[in-house]
Design a protein around this nucleic acid. Structure first.
Lengths: 235, 235
DNA sequence: GACAAACTCGTACGGCGTGCGAGTGGTTTG
DNA sequence: CAAACCACTCGCACGCCGTACGAGTTTGTC
């Protein structure tokens, strides 16, 4: 009995210079970070690699699958401290900040991450390390999942909004300071009579430091959430 | 001096049956809810209204602007209780649930809401009522914004993930129960050795009731966050 | 009856994702 | 050395998309 298609091992050879999935992912990441999701097209990506547009399809089934790879790439950038090093509370804080800065580095993430499952290797490893961290806090078995999910959701929700704000500034072409102060003026005008609480909120704002405001925002809620979670660890 | 183009008031007449922005918005909402963002095209929308595709452009500048209108429409569906009726804490809880169910009714929202500013009338009114609610809690002036932002971010983040999950179930065509149990099996297989914490997490899951799980998830984190916020109200 | 405003819409342009099938350079096999 | 095979590339074409443009139609005012 000769070996069939199934038992025969596949060999044969890519010695000539060739596209690779890793190359494609790297180039696509650069385009995505610079131009956003709408700025990434298979033709443009291929051009950047000096290849024909449809050549990519040998390495990657569809554009959506490519984006899945890119998302998992981002998950791979996130630190989750081991609990024995920092303790749970500050570990979770570090995790949150790491997640935030990864998203800020890849501002296209929010508009795509919720449209597909995250089951890539980096997503799995992230989940694993997260569970270990929150497990060390002393949550009941059941609440470990819930606690970690809450923190991830809070961070991703907050940072998604933050990214949207920063993207608006970028598109406006102005400096952050001048953008903020113009926004405040406009809000003041619109809010004047109909929305008194918003007007008060605008008026009480004193600084135009966008960065500091967004960070304070992020930290405030994360701290509050972690406080709330801390009361739930089993004694 | 005769009145110029500028001072002359615009009259003249739409007596014939005519498209209207409200009509367009309604039809677009139906398509969006049913088929998602990718399912909405100007041609399809026009067909549904029995009109030519480019007729829409007289009423709406671009597709993106149309989507802005639809987003604001959703913001208009959200209840924010007045604080004297329910008190701050349960008011915030109600607000969170109302926001969640609005998003679940319009599952396309997460993929678009963060790509643009929300300054429509309903968004403004939502913000106003939110500030009133949180203002009644006794937060310092400065923290009212932060607290409300945290809750919105948490809810939107959580619900975005929830929508993604539900969408996967819908696309799979299976029942929720069978989808969940298959997911658990697969996770078990993948997680086996490399990801022990995830495996434990999977194993300890007993029910396949998706709805209950997602709701528990949502409530757990919201409760924790509100607990944390409650400690921050000024005495 | 002249004119303008309020609307409708067919045509067309440039872009998109990607299926298909022909082509090409390397390795393995006889 | 030739033939077979494989890994890979890519031009072409299809059907979709958003929307600019300009000509057309209806309606109301003088």
């Amino acid at each position: 009995m000769t070996d069939s298609i199934w038992t025969r091992e596949r060999k044969a050879a890519p010695a000539r210079e060739t596209l690779s999935r890793a190359q494609i992912v790297t180039a696509a990441m650069a385009i995505l970070d610079a131009d956003g999701v709408n700025g990434l097209s298979m033709r443009k990506l291929a051009a950047k690699l000096g290849a024909g547009a449809t050549s990519l399809y040998w390495h990657v089934p569809t554009k959506d699958d490519l984006i899945d790879l890119l998302i998992d790439e981002v998950w791979g950038e996130i630190d989750v401290p081991e609990p024995e090093l920092a303790g749970w509370r500050s570990g979770a804080l570090l995790f949150g900040h790491s997640l935030r800065s990864a998203v800020l580095r890849h501002p296209w993430l929010p508009e795509v991450m919720y449209t597909r499952p995250s089951i890539g290797p980096n997503a799995m490893s992230l989940g694993e390390r997260g569970l270990v961290l929150f497990g060390a806090a002393g949550f009941s078995d059941h609440e470990v999942d819930l606690a970690m999910g809450s923190v991830m959701s809070y961070v991703l929700g907050t940072v998604s909004a933050e990214v949207a704000t920063r993207e608006m500034v970028r598109k406006s072409g102005r400096s952050e300071d001048s953008w903020v102060s113009e926004l405040l003026e406009q809000a003041q005008a619109v809010a004047s009579d109909e929305y008194p609480a918003m007007q008060r909120s605008v008026r009480r704002r004193t600084t135009t430091d966008l960065d500091a405001g967004l960070t304070e925002n992020f930290v405030f809620g994360l701290d509050a959430l972690l406080d709330g979670l801390a009361t739930r660890v089993k004694k």
